[in-house]
């Protein structure tokens, strides 16, 4: 990496952090649109889950099952907090780890499938998760889990680092900062992963699994690793979502969400780690903007999606490339 590239990168990261942590809250305050905190938190959380889906694309698998892990992560956190009185802050990583462990069990058999076969099975997973949540007693069936307490304070040596969310005048501000912080951490981790040797091994799997295994790569283990990280992100996203809503139902994440997670990746660009973030933002607000068009909302939305995929097969992020090349 040349010093100039490094400079550009640091500037990019800095600009991103300034926008997310300073400019957006200032703009929201100026416009008196505190409702946007909730919307933007949703975008951040959905993009974390989409980031996981992106990683499964990265090893060459079409994943339409992330809704299942978002749902499972949400339930794990909700149950730990309500039934076991655990702190939300502990339940969050546990929800992610539970999803990662579950995805190892599920992934070992199904990751042998490729292409449309894998995609179909993952689609079914979302339904399986929903039906299980309906049927089980620990999830409280169709009634779901409600009145989940807001995250408590985080203290260290008697010092309060994060105050209890209930003490905020506007709870959604606290959730916004939580969501974007976790998003920034997740994508930093993902970026590091893809740019490390692990990422290159994943890329090798995508390009030629047979050759990779004849070079001694433990292909089944690497596939499961990618899938576990993906599901971890789904679980974490789902858990925070549930904390914001303070409730979870079997229909909190459905096949529709699974499909959207995948579309976010397509839209942002499969070749760019930060693609899912951009894709989620554009898709989320695009859908909302089309609300005015009433009955034509879905029609216009689908048409625009098809056009975008035809015109920009490498996603929105690819728009940025020509300018970079000329510089």
């Amino acid at each position: 990496m040349t010093p100039m590239q490094r400079g550009t990168r640091i500037a990019g990261i800095g600009a991103f952090l300034v926008v997310v942590f300073i400019a957006v809250p200032m703009a929201i305050a100026a416009a008196h649109r505190t409702d946007l905190y909730y919307t933007l938190s949703s975008v951040a959380l959905l993009s974390i889950a989409s980031g996981g889906v992106w990683l499964t694309f990265y090893i060459g698998r079409i994943n339409i099952g992330q809704g299942a892990f978002a749902l499972v992560g949400g339930y794990v956190s909700a149950i730990l907090v309500t039934a076991y009185g655990l702190s939300f802050w502990l339940s969050l990583p546990l929800a992610g780890l539970f999803c990662a462990a579950a995805s190892v069990l599920v992934g070992l058999p199904i990751l042998r499938l490729r292409g449309v076969y894998f995609a179909m099975v993952t689609l079914v997973l979302t339904e399986v998760a929903r039906l299980s949540a309906l049927a089980l007693s620990v999830t409280n069936g169709a009634k779901g889990i409600t009145s989940i307490p807001a995250p408590g304070p985080i203290g260290l040596f008697g010092l309060t680092i994060v105050p209890a969310f209930d003490t905020f005048a506007e709870r959604n501000v606290a959730f916004y900062f939580l969501s974007v912080t976790v998003m920034a951490l997740c994508f930093a981790g993902l970026w590091r992963l893809v740019n490390s040797r692990v990422g290159r091994l994943f890329a090798a799997l995508r390009q030629n699994e047979d050759l990779a295994s004849s070079m001694g790569l433990n292909v089944p283990a690497l596939r499961v690793l990618a899938y576990a990280i993906s599901s971890f992100l789904g679980g974490v996203g789902g858990a925070i979502f549930v904390a914001i809503a303070q409730s979870i139902y079997p229909s909190s994440f459905t096949v529709n969400d699974s499909v959207n997670f995948m579309l976010n990746c397509f839209l942002g660009g499969l070749g760019y780690v930060f693609g899912p973030m951009l894709g989620t933002l554009v898709l989320y607000f695009g859908w909302d903007l089309l609300f005015q068009t009433g009955q034509y909302q879905l029609l216009i939305y689908s048409g625009v999606m098809i056009l975008l995929i035809l015109l920009l097969p490498n996603g929105l992020f690819s728009l940025r490339l020509p300018s970079r090349r000329s510089s």
């Binding site: 290159r200 091994l201 890329a203 090798a204 390009q207 030629n208 050759l211 070079m215 790569l217």
Partner: peptide
């Protein structure tokens, strides 16, 4: 196909060193 299509020649050989 006995190559990793989308990688540079050098990266392919580096990946194959993994074991």
């Amino acid at each position: 196909t006995t190559i990793f299509k989308g990688m540079t020649a050098r990266d392919s050989v580096i990946v194959a060193h993994h074991l």
